[in-house]
Write a protein that binds this DNA or RNA. Sequence first.
DNA 1: CGATGGATTGAAAGGGCTCAAAAAGGGTGG
DNA 2: CCACCCTTTTTGAGCCCTTTCAATCCATCG
Lengths: 244, 244
Amino acid sequence: MGLDIIRHKVADPGAIIARGFAQYASLNEQENSYLAAQLVNVQRYPARSELIPANSESAAALFLLSGWACRARSLADGRRQIIEFLLPGDIVGFSPTKGRRALAAAYALTPVTVSLASNFYQAFDDTGPFEHFTAVRRALEKNQEMRLINQIVRAGRQTAYERLSHLLLEFHDRLARVGLARDYTFAMPLTQEILADGLGLSVVHVNRTLQQLRREQLLTLTDGIVTLLEPATLARIADFQPAD
Amino acid sequence: MGLDIIRHKVADPGAIIARGFAQYASLNEQENSYLAAQLVNVQRYPARSELIPANSESAAALFLLSGWACRARSLADGRRQIIEFLLPGDIVGFSPTKGRRALAAAYALTPVTVSLASNFYQAFDDTGPFEHFTAVRRALEKNQEMRLINQIVRAGRQTAYERLSHLLLEFHDRLARVGLARDYTFAMPLTQEILADGLGLSVVHVNRTLQQLRREQLLTLTDGIVTLLEPATLARIADFQPAD
DNA sequence: CGATGGATTGAAAGGGCTCAAAAAGGGTGG
DNA sequence: CCACCCTTTTTGAGCCCTTTCAATCCATCG
């Protein structure tokens, strides 16, 4: 198998969703089969495609089976800010739970495969028939809020060096939870321009900051594969605390 | 009355909560009286006090009747980032809805009066007995997420000049909704240091940026009273779009 | 009246940006 | 397998927005 796991070549693409859910509640048989049934409608989108338009309303959920996506907002003059990154196992446009109205557009950053689960959010309501989904929904909401808060702190008060370290630690933490990291190595299929839009930096500065981290032997990044060589040092630099 | 409204001297302090709720759903009599009953336990806290510790769990809601608060996170070396500002009418620590665990500490920025509503969140659940509260909860969650997103875009991609304009427009928008602005004039009881922590800037630069905005006749700010003289121009500068 | 917190100003340094161009990859068609 | 094109990464240089460090000013208050 080798790098297969890291490169996200998994036999059953739906397994990643189940693995994600299982972190927060152990589902019963009924719930597991409902979940599996929701994942059958698989679709592919190319990089850069808009998965969910801003201000759109929908009761459907998009489970991200493979590939990376983001929610982003652009200013009138073209500056773009990525609000949050969405990784395999995440739900794209999870926010529709609230008012069912996307507050920012979601885009594919790489080619992605998603499962379109229409009306899934109904099952997620407290009033839904599945007792354990509420716990999962709350956990996902909490994770999302934590991501937004981290993004604010990074952009508001950290240097480029700290920001980049922090974001990479976050990626590792999130991927490791769904089994997409081996030790401290994981795939990060993002261009430096995308990183820049996520960090609130210029591409050039992302490049130079990455080089600094490499020069200091804190990490390697080649061919889209990141290895955090000194995770403890990076965590200290970035003031990083993993979600519980 | 004059400036009384702006200075937040209102006869019935609980009215501001009802006004806030009424924006999102028209409550029935039962709901209104439940809400009123929740507001009787009024408490005062001085500026700088910690209203909700980070990582604390609670099913109680704090209705902010008067004064301003924030959620904030500090880095190990003392740098502080305000995640979001909480204005009169807001619910402090609203996030406990999710997992009932505060992700960031909440602090009073001025002396505040709050109503402590224990177990209020139960009434907010979809399973609660009050049919209109779900709509309100969703609207509040949406507003909060929008605030976090705005904070990210400001800090990540806007200049100091744009950031400050944007934040002041947001304050106006939010205060106007609960009747705490007259035209484009409102009270903003924040020091420049607090603004700096909210904007991800240094105090000195906030000061200079404010002076620039004043010099250009875009606003006035004296004695904690802001007047946006050219709201349309400010909105264009800041790429501001009010919540629907 | 000294003490204190906040606003303001000046000067200098620096982190990060812009502009520009060169390398390095990665496909694609011939 | 090479030529060509387009994207991405890397470098260099200069600039500027923002920060830091220090004072000073100002109002409030015990």
